[in-house]
């Protein structure tokens, strides 16, 4: 197994960890963390893809874009999480859906 395949395996594992987190957790901050893990997996995947196709510059520009977007997603969702905690007093997604009914 060469370096690239090894990295791709890592990507799959990282992605799996993120999805696993989303599947099981109800905690809002953990959901944000899981989303970030998936985002990082995607970034590494782009880096590997750039090396493999020898279009590193394209990959770099895409990665920078993703980092910016991903950071904004993290910041805004964490801000929302803080608001939720302050106003509704809970961080449990199930309890929040029960509020709707």
């Amino acid at each position: 197994m060469n370096d690239e395949e090894l990295t791709l395996l890592g990507v799959v594992i990282l992605f799996g960890v993120g999805v696993y987190g989303l599947l099981l957790t109800h905690h809002l901050i953990k959901i944000v963390i899981a989303l970030q893990i998936i985002g990082k997996a995607v970034i590494i995947a782009f880096a590997v893809a750039g090396t493999m196709s020898e279009r590193v510059q394209l990959a770099q520009s895409l990665i920078v874009t993703i980092i910016v977007a991903d950071t904004m997603v993290a910041v805004i969702s964490l801000a929302l999480v803080i608001q939720v905690k302050q106003r509704l007093g809970t961080l449990d997604a199930r309890e929040l859906s029960n509020l709707r009914r």
Binding site: V19, L22, L23, L24, T25, H26, I31, S97, R100
Partner: peptide, 13 residues
């Protein structure tokens, strides 16, 4: 359509 994240992720997976 529960609106619950875990349930939707199961669907996606």
């Amino acid at each position: 359509q529960t609106g619950e994240l875990n349930w939707n992720i199961w669907g996606i997976v």
